[in-house]
Amino acid sequence: MDWLRIGAFGLLILYHIGMYFVPWGWHVKIAAPIDWVAIPMLATNSWRLALLFLVSGYASAALFAKLGGAGAFVRSRSARLLIPLVFGIIVVIPPQPWIELMGQHGYAHGLAHFWWHDYFRFGALDGIILPTWQHLWFVVYLWVYTLLAAAVLAWVPERVRAMVADGAVRWLGGWGMLIVPLAAWLLILALFPDHDETHALFDDGPSHLHYLIPFAIGWLLRVRSALFAAVARCWRAGLVIGLAAFAFVAWVEWNWSGNTPAPDWVSMPFHIARLLQGWATIVALVGIADAYWNRDHPWRTTLAEAVFPFYIIHQTIIVVTGWYLLQAGVAALPSFLILVVATVAGCWLFYTIGRTIGWLRPLIGLQRI
């Protein structure tokens, strides 16, 4: 699971670098967006966050077993998630909306003026709600799911929880690991076909239903390890299904790229294919990790620790670097290379400095020593 988490966050960083180049809206864009970049982006964006919620569910179950009580579990997760969240909102995030306001809305003041006079307005500025958690929405959602899990653990008798877990194992056993979660995702799509993910917590109910499913399955994988046998049975089929579904997604994007509207008949098959691709790929990746990556390496501990600090800082580095590349008129290929180098170097610097200073460690998501 550590290797899955490391790999998923690495892809997330590349994905956010890609956001500088695709036609989709974002904080800062290259002067001439490139339509075809959306295809490799679509290779991951149907499953990368759901996979992270699955891994987080597994890790949360392991932490609960270690701490042995709902209260201690909530206190531990809250300290680990909320302290860096608040630090991120106050210190790390502000350059992102400032650059978006300058580049897309003509904001004329510097960062210090923006932070002091406009950022903490608790309202909208040119349609942007401030202050904001931006990419740290994942931390917010994960904390809420942690509270939900703790409530179940505190209020539902252990005997009832065991019965539910055993029933879920029966449903998910064998091919159920591929079929049941996917059927739940398709039901959510059928009930809320027009919902767009907001990352705003309170108006994002269908997204919560979507992400709670992998979070719960990750938890079940930890408390009922027999489910790994179901993954082992069907992950190869999941890999084939995921690749086939992505082929259709890529075909649609290739034929109706950028802002070109696709015909009405394409819309629902496209969304269904993305869900097929998403869950099938997650099952395949868990199976591959269990079969081939279930081993230690000298770098694993360091990389696993560095993931959260990298996540906190990476998007601000990308947005700031992208802004200066845009102002300098740098072409696409050198921009991509510069963004990769600057992001990796900046993340390592943020992590390396923060991990050596005791009072900084909790602020960047690390435990005190």
Rank of each mutant, 00 (worst) to 15 (best):
G10C: 09
Y20E: 09
Y20I: 09
Y20N: 06
P23A: 07
W26Q: 04
W26C: 02
K29G: 08
I34W: 14
A38I: 09
A43D: 07
N45P: 06
S46P: 03
L52P: 07
F53R: 07
F53I: 12
S56F: 10
A59T: 13
S60A: 15
L67Q: 10
G68R: 06
G68T: 14
R75P: 10
R75V: 02
R75W: 11
V91H: 01
V92S: 02
I93S: 06
Q104R: 13
G110A: 01
G110V: 09
W115V: 15
W116S: 12
F122E: 02
G127C: 12
G127E: 09
I128A: 07
W133M: 12
F138S: 01
F138C: 03
L147W: 13
L148Y: 05
A150P: 00
V156N: 04
R159G: 14
R159A: 15
G167K: 07
V169T: 11
L182K: 06
L187N: 00
F192W: 14
P193Q: 10
D194C: 00
H195V: 03
A200M: 11
D203C: 06
S207H: 13
L209M: 14
I213N: 07
P214G: 10
A216W: 11
W219C: 05
V223P: 03
L227W: 06
A247R: 04
V249L: 06
A250P: 01
E253T: 05
A262H: 09
P263A: 09
A273V: 03
R274F: 06
Q277N: 13
A284S: 13
L285F: 11
G287F: 07
G287H: 08
N294L: 08
N294S: 12
W299D: 00
R300C: 01
T301P: 02
W323C: 05
Y324A: 00
L325C: 10
A328R: 14
A331R: 14
I338V: 15
V340K: 03
G346D: 12
L349K: 00
I353R: 00
R355F: 07
I364N: 13
G365A: 10
